[in-house]
Computed example of a mutant assay.
Amino acid sequence: MTSIIVVSHSEEIAYGIQKLIAQMTEGVEVIAVGGSDGTIGTSFEPIQQAIEGLKDDALCFYDLGSAEMNLDMAIEMYDGEYRVEKVEAPIVEGSFLASVNISTGKDYGEVVEAVESEYR
């Protein structure tokens, strides 16, 4: 099954999305990475740790500039066995749509296509 990584400048937003998805869809792992040492911002290391700790393929969603930059760098440096892809979609709506598609049994490619086609 595909996992979702949510990277936000705000810890509350990242964990809020994780909580929303947990209440709305079953069986979808959402990894929340938010804030930077208790403040607003992003850090490369927690994003890299989330990606390095994956147990399955993952789709990644982000909110603002440095979240994307740090996520891109972490994906580029990842040399593990799972597919990890950044998805260009709004962080809340995109990750929620992905979770619904994952929970209904769609495969990785179908989930990416469903989300990206919605927000092109």
Rank of each mutant, 00 (worst) to 15 (best):
D72Q: 14
A74L: 08
I75K: 06
I51D: 01
L59R: 05
E85A: 10
G80L: 11
C60V: 15
A74G: 10
D79Y: 11
A50S: 12
K55Y: 02
N70R: 07
R83H: 12
L54P: 08
Q49G: 03
A74F: 07
L54S: 11
D56Q: 14
E88M: 11
K86W: 10
L59M: 12
E81K: 14
A67G: 15
C60N: 06
L64K: 04
C60W: 02
D56A: 15
D56G: 07
S66Q: 03
I75Q: 02
Y82I: 00
G53F: 03
E85T: 13
K55V: 00
L54N: 08
A50R: 06
L64E: 04
L71I: 07
Y62P: 00
S66P: 03
G65I: 00
L64P: 02
D79F: 12
E81D: 15
F61V: 00
G80R: 11
G53Q: 04
E68T: 08
G65E: 04
E76P: 00
K55T: 11
L54Q: 10
E88A: 12
D79R: 14
M77A: 13
D63Q: 01
F61L: 00
F61G: 01
E85K: 15
A50N: 10
E52N: 14
E81Q: 14
S66N: 06
A67K: 02
K55H: 11
G53S: 14
S66W: 05
L59D: 09
A67Q: 02
A67E: 01
L59E: 04
A58Y: 09
G53V: 05
L54F: 12
N70M: 06
K86N: 12
G65P: 00
K55I: 01
A50F: 06
E81R: 12
A89F: 10
L64T: 07
A50Y: 06
D57R: 06
A58W: 11
E52T: 13
E52V: 10
M73N: 05
Y78Q: 03
G53C: 01
C60I: 15
N70W: 10
A67C: 12
R83T: 05
M69T: 09
L54I: 08
Y62F: 13
Y62M: 09
L71A: 07
L59T: 04
M69F: 04
D56I: 01
D63G: 00
V87Q: 06
M69K: 02
N70D: 12
L71E: 03
E81I: 09
C60M: 14
L64F: 14
L59N: 05
D57G: 04
L59F: 08
K86A: 15
C60A: 15
E76S: 13
V84A: 12
I51R: 02
A50K: 06
A89L: 08
M69I: 13
E76Q: 13
L54R: 12
A50G: 09
M73G: 06
E85I: 05
L59K: 05
D79Q: 15
M77E: 07
M77K: 11
G53W: 03
E88S: 13
E81Y: 05
A89I: 09
L54H: 12
R83L: 08
D72N: 14
E52R: 11
G65F: 00
M73E: 07
E68V: 13
S66M: 02
E52H: 08
V87H: 03
E76L: 11
K55C: 01
N70L: 04
D57E: 10
G80T: 11
Y78V: 01
I75N: 03
M69A: 09
N70V: 03
E52Q: 15
Q49R: 14
K86P: 08
D57L: 02
